[in-house]
Simulated assay, not measured.
Amino acid sequence: MSIGCLCIHGYTGSPEEVQPLVDFLEARTDWEIANPTLPGHGEKLDLEGHYYQEWIATAELALLDLRKRHEKIYVIGFSMGGMIAAYLTAKYHLDRIVLLSAAGKYVSLPQMYKDVLEMLGDAFNGALASNELFTRYQKKLKDTYLFSTFEFMKCVQFTRPYLKDVRCPVLIIQGELDGMVPKEAALYLEKEIPSKEKELVFLKKSKHLICHGDDKEELFEEVLDFVRQP
């Protein structure tokens, strides 16, 4: 039975956020994997004039394209993409879903505080330019259109009610050091999703960009084991 897999990146992100996992799966499966860029996103952000409905529609069109050729569809969603993945899974009764750092409800103020302190420490030591977290978020803050943040919030609000309609097997993976979405979010997802088959995995060394974290090999193996289950 042929399998198609849709991967959905996060808000202000790009397919590169999940590309390491895509590469890993492509090397070990014969799946067709789609990893689209949501409108206004990518390496050069241009979010002004784009709405959350476009982000959902782009992912949905990629899904419908995969369904033309494959009997089974798996979906992997990162951060905001996880919420879009949940919506599509509920709407189309997909076969398996993987939620990576999914932005369901919470923002982690304590971890954000720790990250800021780390950045300040690097600034004091003259090493801020080499702080990967700072350089990544500095670019995002510079390039992010303010009002698109409200579209992100609307996207989460729109998709959240569909969590209760996800019935297929689900794998939830969360980094314990995530400064954007804390572990409580993963526990919330586990509670809200009524699937009988649920797995919840915490990665001790990972922050928000979980496919690029120190635990990424463990993540890749967890995903592969999950999707290979009968």
Rank of each mutant, 00 (worst) to 15 (best):
V227T: 11
L187Q: 10
H93K: 14
K142L: 08
V201W: 00
F202H: 02
V116M: 10
L128G: 03
G126F: 08
L63V: 12
K140L: 15
H93P: 01
H9W: 09
S108G: 11
L224P: 04
P15H: 05
S79E: 02
A90F: 02
L21N: 02
E16V: 11
Q111I: 13
E217G: 08
I8V: 15
K164V: 07
G13W: 01
S2A: 12
P182A: 10
G10D: 03
K196W: 11
R96F: 09
E197F: 09
L63R: 05
E184W: 11
A185P: 00
L100C: 07
Q174T: 05
Q157K: 15
M83R: 02
Y52M: 12
C168H: 06
G40S: 05
S130Y: 14
Y188A: 06
M153Y: 11
G104V: 00
A102S: 15
I73K: 00
I33N: 06
G82I: 04
P230L: 12
N125T: 10
S206E: 06
H70V: 09
N125Y: 10
C168M: 07
E71P: 00
E17W: 03
T149S: 12
K191D: 14
D165M: 09
T29R: 07
G104C: 03
G42N: 08
D178A: 09
L209G: 05
L117S: 10
L141T: 06
F134C: 03
G10L: 11
G49E: 04
A86L: 11
E118V: 08
L219M: 12
W31A: 13
E184I: 03
A186V: 07
Y92V: 07
C211Y: 00
I56Y: 02
G40W: 00
K154P: 01
K164C: 05
C7N: 01
T29N: 11
P182C: 12
E118G: 15
I210H: 03
R28E: 09
D178L: 09
